[in-house]
Amino acid sequence: MTDDSLLRTLAAHEETLVFRRFTVETALELGAFLLAEATRRRLPVALAVRKGGQRVFHAALPGTSVDNDEWLDRKARVVDRYGQSSYRVGESFRVNGTTFEAKSRLDPALYAAHGGVFPVIVTGVGPVGTVGVSGLPQADDHAFVVEVVEDFLRHGYDS
């Protein structure tokens, strides 16, 4: 067994980073917000924001490849299936002494429980989409998404 303090932190992110609404316009604004911050930091990442099953926003910065796009899709499928961040899902398996790949019975070519994709949760509704990044180590992918979503919500762009 591993320490579950990380798992508690990841769950707390999902409890606090909740949108009031999430429209296509909100998804585009969030994507632009992510892109501006990733560009400012010169991060080699691909970004995606989805509403339902539709990819509303996508960008790939220098240093990325089609592999990053595929990672985004695989991590987003995990979030869609479990309703939790891709990092939290992977960590929950590790806390229980196993791995997502070994125990989920899901095709690893289609699903990846690695950090970087976060559920878009709307108050009173639940998960309605995803916001994600790929290109950094998984903890950094997750931390970047959480930080930017937190800043986005703090500025009230979801109203």
Rank of each mutant, 00 (worst) to 15 (best):
D3F: 04
L6W: 05
T9E: 13
L10P: 02
L17H: 08
V18M: 06
V24K: 12
A32V: 09
A32K: 15
L35H: 11
T39F: 13
P44Y: 08
V45K: 02
A46K: 02
A48Q: 13
V49Y: 07
G53T: 07
Q54G: 09
V56D: 07
V56G: 02
F57C: 04
A60V: 13
A60Q: 12
L61H: 11
L61R: 12
P62Q: 04
V66L: 12
V66A: 12
D67C: 09
N68V: 06
D69M: 13
E70R: 11
D73E: 11
K75N: 12
A76G: 08
V79E: 02
D80R: 15
D80V: 07
R81F: 10
R81I: 11
R81S: 14
Y87W: 11
R88V: 04
R88L: 13
V89P: 00
V89L: 00
G90W: 01
N96C: 06
T98S: 14
F100D: 05
S104Y: 01
D107K: 07
P108Q: 05
A112R: 03
A112C: 09
A113V: 04
G116V: 05
P119L: 04
P119W: 01
G126P: 01
V128D: 06
G129Q: 06
T130E: 00
P137S: 06
D140G: 08
D141S: 10
A143K: 07
A143T: 05
V145E: 05
V145W: 03
V149Q: 04
D151M: 10
D151T: 11
F152L: 07
F152Y: 10
H155T: 11
D158W: 05
